[in-house]
Design a protein around this nucleic acid. Structure first.
Lengths: 172, 172
DNA sequence: ACTCAAAGATTGTTTGAACAGATACTGTGG
DNA sequence: CCACAGTATCTGTTCAAACAATCTTTGAGT
């Protein structure tokens, strides 16, 4: 480990150790990766939710809406997505898709329809109101993402994507 | 019970686009970074909480305990940390430190003590039981971190740490 | 046809998070 | 001394997440 400067004064942190005011350097670099990951993702999530909240959306409901929009345009002639499929595609696994859809339905952003062939499944479909909301949010979210990561070069982001994917897949 | 997320039918995904079954490639690489970050961090968090849960701890309470342990050994002759300091050092900013400490106190892992000089502040101190629990968890957590990221080289992890820190600090 | 296990979704309940408002204490200025 | 603003913590309430159990339906086996 490199000799790190003592954080006696309140200067801008140069690494995670100073950022969290940890006294000793990390004994395990894996632990540093772990905390770095969670911190960075949390920052991203907080910023995104700050944008979504005024529109009555959380990260989970917004992601669900995006999944539903993708499902409508791509296959199945607009009969939407099954609840279980939504649960599989969500970025953060949530075991309670039912109440997630409940909220979207209560807000008029999605609607349910039972499948005729298999009456167990419920297809969830995005409504026009939901599509309009996403259309309104699209440029805002795009601009936000571009702004928050503007200081990263394309090479940085490619490398970051590669390493993040690799971290998630031990077998690859 | 296990492997709730792995799809046994399809082939192993080669990137995020295939992983979330997105039909079209990302129009914005920044968005891909964003989702990759949240997905990877979520996976790390889920795995860590699976270890902590049998011991009655969540990620928030575990991190608080670690902060309290660090506070005890490093300064202040063991009078612990103020609630507001805990809130600042937590990986995920939680505005409700009071109830976090409530849970630790109810479990006998921490205790409060009012400051004599300033009767507004409450110092939180880790108990021997809390220290014992951390001592028991230390090797388990270390082994877990080393295992989940074992397929990353040291160069990978250094690069990942560098990029994650850079992503978090636009001004650097 | 009948039984049964499994899939898919919903419901019930408990816990924790989020946000606002309230309380207790300190230090300062008049 | 008193009013007042600021700080640090606590409390009250609402909402979402987590977990288990239940209900309905389907498909397979006998």
């Amino acid at each position: 480990m490199t000799a790190t400067r003592s954080n006696s004064t309140a200067a801008a942190p140069a690494n995670l150790q100073e950022e969290i005011q940890k006294r000793r350097p990390f004994d395990l670099i894996e632990e540093e990766v772990h905390l770095n990951l969670i911190r960075t993702a949390q920052q991203q999530l907080d910023a995104a939710e700050a944008i979504l909240k005024p529109h009555g959306l959380s990260a989970a409901t917004y992601n669900t809406l995006r999944i539903l929009r993708g499902a409508q345009t791509n296959e199945g002639a607009g009969h939407g997505r099954m609840c279980s499929e939504i649960g599989e595609q969500l970025v953060s696994r949530v075991p309670d898709v039912t109440r997630l859809v409940d909220r979207l339905e209560a807000a008029g952003l999605a609607e349910r329809a039972r499948c005729d062939r298999d009456r167990r499944v419920v297809y969830v479909r995005i409504t026009q109101k939901g599509l309009d909301l996403l259309t309104e949010l699209d440029p805002v979210i795009r601009a936000h993402h571009k702004t928050t990561l503007a200081h990263l070069s394309k090479r940085d982001m490619d490398e970051l994507n590669r390493l993040l994917f690799k971290a998630r897949h031990p077998e690859a």
